[in-house]
Amino acid sequence: MTALTIRLGLLRSGLELRQFFRGRESVIFSFALPILLLVVFGSVFGGQDLAPGVTLTQYFVAGMIAAAQLTNGFQTLAIQIPIERDRGVLKRLAGAPMPAASYFIGKVVMVYLIGIAGCVVMLAIATAFFHVDLPTTGQKWWTFAWVSLLGIAACTLCGIAFSSIPRESKRAPAVVTPVALVLQFISGVFFVFTDLPGWMQQIGALFPLKWMAQGMRSVFLPGSYAANEPAGTWELGRVAVMLVAWVVIGLVLCLLTFRWTTKEDR
């Protein structure tokens, strides 16, 4: 990858950000909705204790940060790219002098920047209004960083790959949104993971969001709560392995499935 490709990709990311925040639907459902859910759940369950020294809000914040990363990476791109494909944007870009890699760099940078902005807003609200404690050690912040880095990468690549499934852009939200919601329900975002049925836990463990949420819990919850996890520990090594595996799987799926044009244009 040349320096020109990277520079064009970074320039492209600026355009992607402007397009994202100009779209009412993307701002509401990808950026604002996780923040709104945090406010709602925090207001309803803010005073309830899940375990000694652990409030339900503290647990929920960890899951909602992971869910926001899934939404920004997977859901945004799996809906946005089919729209660009139907409008002929991808077809024009495929025939333009700009390297194809620059297009994907623009998307990835956009997702990361939106993810950072959303996370900052969520943490600010959680600490200011719901008394959520931020990590106090460098090790926990490092865990937060690498879980976010790998998790967003996995969700972004899966979103790009999944964008080839909707046959028409107008059907994309109806196809993508239920998938994202089901993953959140079976991955310990809205409920305590160990309270879910065993078969649901096993299915959730196949996908990256469960491991992203578990990694985030290790950051925001005290070490003593790890005993309540399915394995009795945070399993951070396994979290890393699973997220790296999904990055590889997502990349392979992108290479195999991504289409620049609709079937009618072929």
Score class of each variant (00 low, 15 high):
residue 216 M to I: 08
residue 28 I to V: 15
residue 265 D to W: 10
residue 21 F to L: 10
residue 266 R to M: 14
residue 33 L to Y: 05
residue 34 P to F: 08
residue 181 L to V: 13
residue 221 L to Y: 03
residue 86 D to K: 04
residue 194 T to S: 06
residue 170 K to S: 15
residue 229 E to P: 01
residue 227 A to I: 06
residue 114 I to G: 05
residue 100 A to E: 12
residue 57 T to V: 13
residue 250 G to D: 03
residue 185 F to N: 00
residue 133 D to I: 10
residue 34 P to L: 10
residue 201 Q to R: 06
residue 2 T to A: 07
residue 216 M to R: 01
residue 180 A to K: 01
residue 156 T to I: 10
residue 68 A to M: 11
residue 166 P to D: 09
residue 38 L to Y: 04
residue 264 E to K: 11
residue 3 A to Y: 13
residue 124 A to Y: 09
residue 17 L to I: 06
residue 235 E to F: 04
residue 135 P to Y: 02
residue 226 A to D: 00
residue 119 C to H: 09
residue 82 P to E: 11
residue 143 T to D: 07
residue 102 S to F: 00
residue 240 A to T: 04
residue 192 V to K: 14
residue 235 E to R: 00
residue 45 F to H: 15
residue 240 A to F: 06
residue 228 N to I: 01
residue 46 G to S: 10
residue 188 G to S: 02
residue 65 I to V: 15
residue 190 F to W: 13
residue 56 L to F: 15
residue 145 A to T: 10
residue 43 S to A: 05
residue 90 L to Y: 05
residue 217 R to A: 05
residue 220 F to R: 02
residue 43 S to L: 02
residue 261 T to V: 14
residue 192 V to G: 07
residue 93 L to I: 14
residue 196 L to M: 13
residue 136 T to G: 15
residue 139 Q to S: 15
residue 42 G to T: 02
residue 8 L to D: 13
residue 26 S to M: 12
residue 17 L to E: 04
residue 175 V to E: 05
residue 164 S to W: 00
residue 4 L to W: 11
residue 123 L to P: 06
residue 31 F to C: 00
residue 141 W to N: 09
residue 209 L to I: 00
residue 88 G to S: 06
residue 14 G to D: 08
residue 104 F to Y: 08
residue 66 A to C: 05
residue 214 Q to V: 10
residue 21 F to Q: 12
residue 167 R to A: 15
residue 35 I to G: 09
residue 146 W to R: 06
residue 254 C to H: 12
residue 51 A to G: 09
residue 266 R to F: 14
residue 150 L to S: 08
residue 129 F to R: 07
residue 57 T to F: 15
residue 1 M to I: 11
residue 255 L to S: 11
residue 226 A to N: 04
residue 60 F to H: 11
residue 71 T to C: 11
residue 46 G to T: 04
residue 75 Q to E: 12
residue 70 L to V: 06
residue 184 Q to K: 02
residue 185 F to I: 05
residue 149 L to N: 08
residue 83 I to S: 14
residue 26 S to C: 11
residue 3 A to G: 14
residue 113 L to F: 05
residue 166 P to A: 10
residue 132 V to D: 00
residue 248 V to L: 12
residue 104 F to R: 03
residue 176 V to T: 01
residue 250 G to R: 02
residue 64 M to C: 10
residue 212 M to G: 05
residue 146 W to C: 10
residue 25 E to Y: 14
residue 95 G to N: 07
residue 167 R to H: 13
residue 61 V to P: 08
residue 82 P to F: 10
residue 259 R to D: 13
residue 1 M to W: 11
residue 239 V to F: 02
residue 215 G to Q: 02
residue 258 F to P: 04
residue 18 R to C: 03
residue 121 V to G: 05
residue 236 L to H: 03
residue 113 L to E: 00
residue 163 S to Y: 02
residue 196 L to R: 03
